[in-house]
Computed example of a mutant assay.
Amino acid sequence: MTLNPVSSSARQLAVSDKTTTLLFDHDGTLIDSESVHFDLWKDILLKYDVELSEDFYCEVMAGIPVKQNAVDLVEHFNISIAPQQLAQQKHKSISDYLDKQAFPLMPFAKETIEHCANKGYTIGIVTGGSKNSVEKTLSQYGLSAYISCVVAVEDVENSKPAPDCYALAMDKLGKIPGECVAIEDTQTGMTAALAANLACVVIPTDLSKHHDLSGATVGYKSLKDWVDCELVF
């Protein structure tokens, strides 16, 4: 079962008058990176005579940290390489990409961050991706001043779908779950947020629209739709 983003006339709001803090996922939520990750994985796997399909990527890999992606790929396609080595190849390909440019922003991402900051919300980024990727985004697009906390895959032993990353972000910010809302795009991210007892907004992409997002507090078609519905007051 997938989530049908709600209309403005029939919705449960995630943001309330108790909300002080907005915790954004990075890949797929603030940056349009999943298609890049898909292409990078495709190039890597061709060396092992594996043709990665978009369906497999969407169903098994989207929103999952690289370490687990590598395990799943080796097991499913019976690739003759240690998962750790495969993950290292992917990390290098990401590093090479980020040496040249940041990932492109999702539509209305910069405006969303600026609007949330102007409304007085504390903003954090909680990602299953690398800190380097987040830092590149913040520096290239001039967003560093708005972000109070970044928790990345390097910061926790168990990344998403475990709740550890969100728990660490709240600890760093001195917040409790009732003050925070998570904004995610995948089932994996939503699961992490819900396990941390957070309200969760989901904004699926084309690569995650078939995920089971029915557990989310609310869903929207885009960041702009969410801002217009919940953050205009």
Score class of each variant (00 low, 15 high):
residue 180 C to S: 07
residue 226 W to T: 03
residue 115 H to A: 12
residue 218 V to N: 10
residue 53 S to T: 15
residue 233 F to G: 14
residue 161 P to V: 11
residue 207 L to G: 00
residue 128 G to R: 02
residue 21 T to P: 02
residue 233 F to K: 11
residue 71 V to W: 03
residue 214 S to H: 04
residue 55 D to F: 05
residue 192 A to V: 03
residue 184 E to M: 08
residue 36 V to G: 01
residue 190 M to V: 08
residue 35 S to F: 06
residue 210 H to N: 15
residue 138 L to N: 00
residue 44 I to L: 12
residue 142 G to H: 05
residue 144 S to N: 12
residue 116 C to D: 02
residue 144 S to R: 13
residue 23 L to C: 04
residue 203 I to R: 02
residue 123 I to A: 03
residue 83 P to A: 12
residue 4 N to V: 14
residue 214 S to T: 15
residue 62 A to F: 02
residue 27 D to L: 06
residue 164 D to T: 08
residue 91 H to K: 12
residue 144 S to H: 09
residue 27 D to E: 08
residue 95 S to A: 15
residue 6 V to S: 12
residue 68 Q to K: 14
residue 120 G to A: 10
residue 155 D to I: 07
residue 173 L to E: 04
residue 149 C to K: 03
residue 29 T to A: 09
residue 215 G to H: 05
residue 15 V to L: 06
residue 121 Y to K: 05
residue 160 K to P: 10
residue 74 V to W: 05
residue 8 S to L: 12
residue 115 H to L: 13
residue 82 A to Y: 08
residue 71 V to S: 04
residue 79 I to G: 03
residue 51 E to M: 08
residue 81 I to R: 02
residue 204 P to D: 03
residue 85 Q to H: 13
residue 94 I to A: 02
residue 157 E to T: 14
residue 179 E to H: 08
residue 148 S to V: 04
residue 205 T to E: 07
residue 31 I to P: 00
residue 228 D to I: 12
residue 116 C to R: 01
residue 127 T to Q: 03
residue 16 S to R: 12
residue 141 Y to H: 12
residue 121 Y to H: 09
residue 220 Y to K: 05
residue 31 I to Y: 01
residue 168 L to F: 08
residue 173 L to I: 12
residue 135 E to H: 09
residue 26 H to P: 00
residue 119 K to A: 13
residue 186 T to Y: 02
residue 137 T to I: 06
residue 153 V to M: 05
residue 93 S to Y: 11
residue 130 S to M: 13
residue 101 Q to R: 14
residue 128 G to Q: 01
residue 69 N to V: 13
residue 60 V to M: 13
residue 17 D to K: 14
residue 69 N to W: 04
residue 177 P to H: 06
residue 26 H to N: 15
residue 10 A to Y: 09
residue 55 D to A: 11
residue 53 S to R: 07
residue 68 Q to T: 15
residue 53 S to E: 11
residue 186 T to F: 07
residue 150 V to H: 03
residue 91 H to W: 11
residue 5 P to W: 00
residue 231 L to Y: 02
residue 56 F to R: 03
residue 134 V to A: 03
residue 39 D to E: 14
residue 43 D to R: 14
residue 94 I to M: 09
residue 101 Q to L: 02
residue 163 P to Q: 08
residue 72 D to M: 13
residue 44 I to F: 10
residue 49 D to P: 01
residue 81 I to D: 00
residue 174 G to M: 09
residue 70 A to K: 06
residue 141 Y to M: 05
residue 23 L to K: 01
